[in-house]
Design a binder for these strands. Structure first.
Lengths: 371, 371
DNA sequence: CAGCACCCTGAATCATCCT
DNA sequence: CAGGATGATTCAGGGTGCT
């Protein structure tokens, strides 16, 4: 234990402190049924092989730390079951668990936590507004991570602050997909050399939403993979008690220093600062996918003089050129640019109608809150 | 098999038909390595009476078991492993699998498909633009489902139409989160009583994106949980072959009728933006042979800072090194690699132009290639 | 100080063909 | 089958520094 350990005599559980060492062993030192929430960001077991360069030839700084390396799926599963069992033991009967992961590990973790008796309440998708692209064009941009929210057992009376989350979401029910930026800028902790202090630091906004939604003030939150202490920082700000477990001394030091700088937020200051909503971008291809226009259908220009055919991937063909609705429109007109939405028309009930009305239709179906 | 069965004698795999019966047994009747893509929407209700089979094809008597989570999860896992094993057997070496599910089952399915040797390429979130709200306010609105895209094995050369998906998304990389509406309105099939014909009918837009992105025209797509045939309908429209397996006769009838009404899109509309990788290779030396560049001519780097001279054999000389356009570019930049086609420029009418335009000129002179 | 151009970076299972 | 050569490939956002 670190020198900041303060043990609450009444419950027997340490509070607001970082325990050092392996997470399973450290949890063994905690009493049964002493924690309200576990937030866990376990190693993802990424299984990366070679190196990866960006198209500009710069090197991608990959997660190659020893703590993320497991010899096999079986070894990872055993590790997962072990820490989940301890987490479940230290949870109060009405406690709950959050775990975050990617496709590399989250399916295994989800299955194991079901096996352990946890009861899944939701899976929540963290949709990153600014993910790293796929540089080689071999897969989809991996633009999200998955969190699982589960109560200790099927009958648990878990905490869910429905109204608080609804307020955070501007008055409508909070959904299972959360759009939040990754952790960058001043929030991203740096080491003495100015490099990122931890390879996988999570944004505070994510933990903020978790704790506002599924804990009460005064609750004890345990993070068995504490890292640089995002969980502790947000817990302190929100008036929750926290316990962190971290093996690496360098991370513990950074986390302690970080949390010591945090001040508790006033109750009224909470429900603010959510990401601003941008107008939804509707790609033309979506009109084709959704059957509003058919591949092979002919579009005509505003004047009616030009024509193009829609292809299956949402590009247009006219004469010998193909491209987006904007590119083909601009080329046909010899213009530097062209707003294809208003330029191109389709036939509807005998009339020629700009394709923009179809876009407006989709936007209106999305409702007032596209986020 | 249904009366519409048409067996392609050459390949031994039936095409464009619905097979009746249990999906595992029906797949056993298909030859090895005969299918390009499996799209599966398996049941996730753990209390399926009589649908669960062990790998030895014996029935799992799950309903008589006590309903502790362990026994039912295990039964579901055995069922999952059994159909995944058959799906993997019938897939071609470079084939791929899509599975869709919710938090009730997707973690178990994901873990089992990794265990079976499938290699996850992406998990994709179908974010519903119009989900059902959570009426009791006890959880988050369950606003998404999860799909897993996996190749048959780690080394598989899976199909990914990067450029087509990028075009569908109007020029930026397709991400792993797809916003699409649920299946409603005219698309939603009704039975004789006007009730929805199938409880979990998927939108065609979802299958459209899957097939445009990860199959080619002419591919064989197998759906072992065919239901009312969304996979078949989209496959037919997009010029893919399809095989459905469905045990319920009522669903089979609806699906057959539905698919018979679908018309295949014309070939020109099916065309999709091609990647550069599909273009023929032109050796740099050909530019010299054809007189598009002269031996002795000077090329300059993108920035204009570096220069090299063309030699008669299509190599470059700069400083004291010679080599290909790529090798010399990489060496001069100290980069791990370099695309010489876009790096090197020549003078044309006073302007600096990348040598890639000369290659494009040759490619276009070659005319359209037979596919 | 505003505006702009440029640089840097993020949990990444990121190539294929020919000899 | 190993090894070498070719050549395809990125988005959003924050920081920095210049005009």
């Amino acid at each position: 234990m670190t020198n900041t350990t303060i043990t609450a005599a009444r419950s027997g559980v340490p509070r607001d402190t970082i325990l050092s060492g392996d997470c399973i062993e450290a949890m063994r030192g905690l009493p049964d049924a002493s924690v309200d929430l576990v937030f866990a960001d376990p190693p993802y077991n990424l299984q990366l092989k070679g190196t990866l360069h960006r198209p500009d030839n710069s090197l991608v700084d990959a997660v190659d730390d020893d703590w993320d390396s497991f010899s096999s799926f079986r070894a990872y599963d055993e590790f997962t079951s072990a820490w989940l069992a301890e987490a479940r033991r230290v949870l109060k009967p009405n406690g709950a668990l959050w775990v975050i992961g990617s496709y590399h590990n989250i399916f295994r973790v989800g299955a194991k936590l079901q096996d352990a008796g946890f009861w899944i309440l939701n899976d929540v998708v963290w949709r990153k507004s600014n993910p790293m692209p796929n540089f080689r064009g071999k897969r989809l941009t991996n633009a999200h991570e998955t969190m699982i929210w589960a109560s200790r057992g099927e009958g648990s009376k878990y905490t869910f602050n429905y109204e608080a989350l609804k307020a955070l979401n501007e008055g409508t029910q909070m959904r299972s997909d959360w759009v939040l930026p990754i952790c960058t800028g001043h929030e991203r902790l740096k080491d003495a050399e100015g490099q990122k202090a931890h390879p996988t630091q999570k944004p505070e906004s994510l933990l903020y939403r978790v704790m506002v939604g599924t804990t009460n003030a005064g609750d004890v939150v345990l993070d068995p993979f504490f890292g640089t202490g995002t969980t502790g920082a947000v817990a302190k700000a929100l008036g929750r008690s926290w316990i962190g477990i971290e093996r690496e001394e360098s991370y513990r030091k950074i986390a302690e220093e970080r949390i010591s700088r945090v001040r508790r937020l006033e109750a009224g200051a909470l429900a603010v600062t959510q990401s601003k909503r941008a107008a939804p971008r509707i790609p033309f291809g979506q009109l084709v996918e959704r059957g509003l226009l058919r591949p092979g259908e002919t579009l005509t220009s505003m004047s009616g003089q030009r024509a193009a055919k829609v292809r299956a991937d949402g590009t247009l063909v006219a004469d010998d050129m193909t491209g987006s609705i904007h590119q083909v429109g601009a080329a046909l007109e010899g213009a530097p640019s062209c707003n294809g939405w208003t330029y191109w028309h389709f036939r509807k009930d005998g009339a020629r109608v700009p394709i923009d009305v179809l876009r407006q239709q989709i936007i209106s179906e999305l409702g007032p809150r596209p986020n």
